[in-house]
């Protein structure tokens, strides 16, 4: 049996399982912390830095998805500083590749777009990078547009941890990082891929998607919960 700890989030007292991360606990208690790369059911990355929070007594900020709760911890989820940092994170992601919402399959169903609205990222203070990655339409059911990828690695984690295949990974590093199938093969020729579709279901933006359907019809959220329920069956079974 794991221990229970008590902490406060924005002044509200909550109880949590020791070892759980702050973000998960906050969500369980209906306290909203914006987040992007986080996906319940798979391991946390701590990469996008949108879910940063403050902890009283520390001058630092913490990515709540990878910071475990502790007894007596006082978490602050909103402040001028946190809003400033979150805005930068979204702004930099928007500027990193040519995100053009008006022509994107995810328009209206995109977590990046939604967070930009919510955090008031109404313009970019840095120049945009207009990458020109080739659109991969070789798979019969799915498509991959690297120009829309935000490197959240949800697809990688879900393919590895839920589907158990690890057909997807990152190549290169830093600003040149790119999500790849097998040896940077075209999706349709990636032998490891089982075409399960989980990656496109969890993609928060329009980088991986089901061909021929706008995302609004795919009902992404339901698919995500479907994926996750499959996972729990697997763990139990």
């Amino acid at each position: 049996m794991s221990k229970t700890v008590e902490l406060t989030i924005d002044g509200k007292k909550v109880a949590a399982k020791e070892g759980d991360n702050i973000l998960k606990v906050a969500r369980e208690n209906n306290i909203y912390i914006p987040a992007l790369c986080y996906l319940e059911g798979v391991s946390s990355l701590g990469g996008c830095r949108v879910c940063v929070v403050e902890i009283r007594g520390s001058p630092k900020v913490f990515a709540s998805c990878v910071t475990p709760v502790a007894e007596g911890m006082e978490v602050i989820t909103d402040s001028e500083r946190l809003r400033r940092y979150r805005k930068w994170a979204i702004e930099l992601l928007l500027a990193e590749r040519p995100h053009v919402c008006s022509v994107c399959v995810a328009n209206g169903n995109c977590e990046l777009q939604q967070l930009a609205t919510e955090l008031g990222v109404d313009h970019l203070r840095v120049d945009r990078k207009w990458t020109n990655y080739e659109l991969d339409l070789t798979h019969e059911r799915f498509a991959y547009d690297p120009n829309r990828c935000i490197l959240c690695t949800r697809c990688i984690r879900v393919c590895d941890e839920v589907e158990g295949v690890h057909a997807i990974d990152l190549m290169l590093r830093g600003k040149n990082s790119k999500v790849i199938f097998d040896l940077d093969d075209k999706w349709g020729f990636a032998e490891s891929c089982t075409s399960c579709g989980k990656c496109s279901a969890v993609c928060p933006v329009g980088a991986l998607y089901v061909k021929g359907k706008p995302l609004s019809e795919v009902k992404k959220k339901e698919l995500v919960s479907f994926v996750m329920s499959r996972r729990s069956e697997k763990t139990i079974g």
Binding site: P98, V100, C101, S102, V103, D122, H123, R128, W130, N132
Partner: peptide, 17 residues
Amino acid sequence: GDCAVNGNVTALRNSLN
């Protein structure tokens, strides 16, 4: 609008070499 704010569709040509 998006074109004035961030280039939008008008700036898609920037991706071409």
